[in-house]
């Protein structure tokens, strides 16, 4: 089973997210994340959905999504050169002694120290999955209080100098 990133262009109308979510739930597909937002065309939104599944399941997911009237097109980005990023915020317990260590981790990974509390630090990182995993592993020993992630968003790449 591999992760697949499906990019779904949909009508920017109320109820469309519910349709997509309801289809995914009703057909018992497993999703890792779903991110949605407006595109360059204000009447359309793009959903980036990360699925876990074999080829047959992903094919079926794409076909079922295409069946929805409000879905304009779908694309399996995993099959193409693509760029994907996720934003994560982690609130970490710190003491006066560990605070500089956590700040150092942030600097090494180019994460932003987004909030500073008396007993906590919140780091914000935009990165690919490997980088996010590294961050989480490095801060784990200090005590992670809360995590929030946007889910991945992705686009196809246009290779410079290509045809």
């Amino acid at each position: 089973m591999a992760k697949h990133i499906i990019s779904v262009l949909v009508e920017n109308k109320f109820g469309v997210l519910a349709r997509v979510a309801s289809l995914i739930a009703g057909r018992a597909f497993n999703i890792d994340s779903l991110a949605v937002g407006e595109t360059e065309d204000p009447t359309a939104s793009r959903m980036t959905i990360v699925f876990d599944g074999d080829e047959k399941t992903i094919e079926q997911i794409k076909k079922q999504l295409n069946r929805l009237i409000d879905v304009i097109s779908t694309q399996d980005l995993t099959k193409e050169e693509h760029l994907d990023r996720e934003l994560i915020m982690v609130k970490i317990s710190v003491s006066p002694k560990t605070r500089p260590e956590v700040v150092e981790i942030a600097e090494t990974l180019k994460a932003e120290v987004a909030d500073v509390g008396v007993k906590t630090l919140t780091l914000l990182l935009v990165g690919d999955q490997a980088k996010i995993k590294t961050l989480l592993e490095l801060v784990k020993p200090y005590g992670v209080k809360e995590i929030v992630r946007t889910g991945r968003i992705a686009l196809t790449r246009d290779i410079a100098g290509g045809v």
Binding site: G15, R19, S22, L23, G26
Partner: peptide, 14 residues
């Protein structure tokens, strides 16, 4: 009604 019938219609409109 649109919510209830979403999975059993080809499409629905409010």
């Amino acid at each position: 009604v649109c919510g209830i019938t979403r999975p059993i219609t080809k499409h629905n409109f409010l």
